[in-house]
């Protein structure tokens, strides 16, 4: 039976899972790491001031990448859960409304012009928000954006962005093509600074959680939510902006990584249903963020170790895992 105490228990369990995946991510790689190296790297330097190579590698390379991957996974999963409530459609994901398409257009344009990395990030973020405002403004046209209108506008904007991306790829010089493709497929290797993404993840959760029960009611229909005193228009607008912010941040940090935002809310929902909870956002939102973060962290660790020293783009791996899992879930849903 849903209760606050059981929610805290579940979240503590998932927090332990996240810590475990972080430890695995920090320890895995070509340079062997001991347990004491891990502790030194995480909880303070050695008193003498000299640090081993392993500690340097953890602090300088693996930790930012691991935290960044975790934050992106959490952001994408959270955005997916929010979009599914907003569109009342279990098949919605963070990219369904064209946000990643906008980010890709911005980022590729910056790459094509040969701009610096920080400008590519800025362009990706700007592109994501431009796409969001475009969809929001167009769908809002008749003052009562319905789900279908929102979804259709988003899909059309996304496919327009797809065409622009294809155009840029076809005219891009050979030398830039590989970087562009990695960006498009999603790659945690480009993460140098994890703190902005972590901060946005914390902020999004802090903003969404107070409205979690409102979202539960909203998921059952606008009219019912209205009669129960939920300010539907305001909450929907807030959810949309929050999901867009989370998606834009994740895409800017690590490119458009697929399937985390679609799969993770479903996985968590199915698992919670076994425990006798349905679609309760009070637990679902923090749980999806933790599971999404852990999953992307593990996928990224696999991506950089499985055929080391070659690295795979993590987006390919999440899709390769995600597609069969999702098909399996869909086929099971039909039979039960």
């Amino acid at each position: 039976m849903p209760s606050r105490r059981r929610a805290f228990f579940v979240l503590a369990l998932l927090l332990a899972l996240a810590a475990l995946s972080l430890a695995v991510a920090l320890a895995a790689g070509s340079i062997p790491v001991t347990l004491s190296d891990l502790f030194t790297a995480l909880f303070g330097g050695s008193p003498t001031g000299e640090t081993s190579l392993a500690v340097e590698v953890i602090r300088g390379l693996r930790l930012p990448r691991a935290l960044g991957a975790f934050a992106c996974g959490g952001l994408l999963a959270l955005a997916g859960a929010l979009m599914q409530v907003l569109l009342r459609n279990p098949l919605a994901d963070p990219y369904v409304l064209g946000i990643s398409g906008g980010a890709a257009v911005g980022a590729l344009l910056a790459m094509l012009l040969g701009l610096a990395l920080w400008f590519i990030n800025l362009a990706a973020f700007g592109g994501a928000f431009a796409a969001m405002l475009l969809v929001f403004g167009l769908a809002h046209g008749d003052n009562s954006w319905t789900r279908t209108r929102l979804l259709l506008t988003g899909v059309i904007v996304a496919s327009g962005c797809g065409a622009a991306v294809a155009l840029m790829l076809s005219i891009a010089p050979e030398t830039q093509l590989r970087g562009m493709l990695f960006w498009l497929m999603g790659d945690a290797g480009q993460i140098s600074e994890a703190r902005p993404a972590l901060a946005v993840l914390a902020l999004s959760l802090a903003l969404a959680l107070p409205f979690a029960r409102e979202l539960n009611v909203l998921a059952r229909g606008d009219r019912l939510a209205q009669t129960l005193g939920v300010p539907v228009a305001q909450v929907k607008r807030g959810v949309y902006f929050l999901a867009a912010l989370a998606t834009a941040t994740a895409v800017t940090t690590a490119g458009s990584i697929g399937f985390i935002g679609l799969i993770v809310p479903h996985l968590v929902r199915l698992w919670l249903l076994r425990q006798g909870w349905g679609n309760d956002q009070r637990l679902l939102l923090p749980a999806t963020a933790l599971v999404g973060g852990s999953l992307l962290l593990l996928a990224d660790t696999l991506a950089r170790t499985v055929i080391a020293p070659q690295q795979l783009p993590v987006g390919v791996l999440t899709a390769l895992i995600g597609v069969p899992v999702f098909l399996y879930l869909l086929s099971r849903e039909k039979t039960t």
Partner: peptide
Amino acid sequence: VLPQHQSDPFPAT
């Protein structure tokens, strides 16, 4: 208010 239609896009008890 008892609405004319109910919708349950997500599983619930």
